[in-house]
Structure formats: C-alpha cells, structure tokens
Amino acid sequence: MIWLDTLIQGILLGGLYALFAAGLSLVFGIMRLVNLAHGDLIVLGAYLILGLGTATGLHPFLAAALALPLMFALGWALQSALLNRVLGDDILPPLLVTFGLSVVIQNALLMGFSADSRKLPIGPIEAQSLPLGPVTVGAMPLITFGSAIVVILGLNWLFYHTALGRAFRATSDDPVTAQLMGIRPRRIFAVATGIAMVVATIAALYLGARANFDPAIGPARLLYAFEAVIIGGLGSLWGTLAGGLVIGVAQAMGAAINPEWQILAGHLAFVAVLLVRPRGLFPRAND
C-alpha cells in the first residue's frame, strides 16, 4: 500500500509541476522562446499574491484572482517591450536576456522581501484530507491537480477552438505566411506571454500554498518545469502534463527510498526519457 500511496502523491505533485510548465510550454511552442526567467516570474507571482492578500485582507485564492490581470499585463509588456526585440534565428540573445531577467527579478525580490521564507495563509483547508479508497489524499494537492487538468483543458480549448488559438498555431507553424493572412506575430506573442503569466500566477498560488517559498527558489522550479516540457515534447500541452507526472512520480519514488534522492530521481528520469526519445514523448512540432 505504501507504494500506491507514493505513486498517488507523485501524481499529485506532478500536477503542480505541470502547472509550472504549462505557461513555459505555451510560449516555447508558439515562438520557440525559452524563458529562463519563468521560475522567477512564478515566485514573483507568489509574492504578488502575498502582498495583495496582506494589503486587502483577502484570502489568497481571491488575491490570486486580483493578481491574474496584473500578471497578464506584466507578461504582455515584457514581450512587447523586451522579448520581441531579441526573437530570431539566433537562440542566444533570448536565452541571455531571460537569464539576465532571472537574476534581476531574483535579486529585486531579495531586496524587497529579504531572504526569509514565506507561505500563503490558506487557512484550515491546508490540513484537510479525503479518504480515497485505500489511501488518503490531502485536499490541497487534489485541488492543485484538478486545477492543472482544468488549465490544460482550457489552454487546449483556446488552442484548437478559438480564432486566437488558430492564430497561435499559424504563427507557430509559419510566421511569414501567418502575416500574409493579417496576423501580427508580435501581438500574438505578447498575448501568448500574457496568458503564460496568467498560468504562472495559478502555479504561484499552489506553490505558495503548498510549501515555503523565498526569492531564490525560482531557478529550481524552472528546471523541473522545463524538464516536464521537454519530456512531453515540443508544443504538446497534454505531453507537458505527462512530463510533469513523470517528474513528480520519479521524485516521490526517489524520496520514498531516501529523502536526499528526491530531486536526483527526477533529474535521472528526465535524462532516461531523453536518452530513449530525444524529442520527448509526444512532439507535435519540429523545432
């Protein structure tokens, strides 16, 4: 039974990682942009939720709803003012710019909020759990996992059933021809990054509710998220969810054997998948 329990904990943890990764996957799939600041932007989102909650006295869930439009605007502005300028055939400039951004955000947070670890106060629901057949699962991990599914469903709907999604796919496949059809790639990119930041804010809510956070934890979250994206395959959102589950289950299994092996097991699973399938499990597009 302990193995079943570990497996389920791993799957639920994988939901959180899929949330970290979904925004990254969206941006990467549409414009081949690797945002090395994504982890730090999630942490920024968590601080924003914390700040809004403290200022207004609202519950973190409501504060997160307030943070969503702000983070969308931030993503939109970031893409329009900064990232659009460095997109191109050469992959170095966007990598280096987002790397710089990561260091700037991390240290700005450190200045503003100190290195103390914080947590979002979500109240009694934190300790609640549900008996689910032979195992008991926490309410929050279950809500996190459910949110991940809803986010992926929502993004897929957006991608395949709306005009905006059609523009996303067209720009992803062939930006030049898309322009002939009256699509402005730069605008599309700005909206995409805005949406990615909305997803990042949802991820930030569950990150802050689940465990302590501090300004320095962004890069590690980015690494898990990116591993999930790569395992899933470029441009496949369900693949990203699968990738998150692989990392989550591997980490839970590793931790069950020896707590020091949690992160290591996740990385090893990533390497193992890539050795067998260098393009990931479900690649949609060619890079």
Partner: peptide, 13 residues
Amino acid sequence: LIVLGLIGIAVML
C-alpha cells in the same frame, strides 16, 4: 547583481 543583469540585457538589446 541587479546592475549586472540589467547591463547584460542592455548589451543584448
């Protein structure tokens, strides 16, 4: 570190 990051971004731009 912030200054270093900003200079790096400015150089790339």
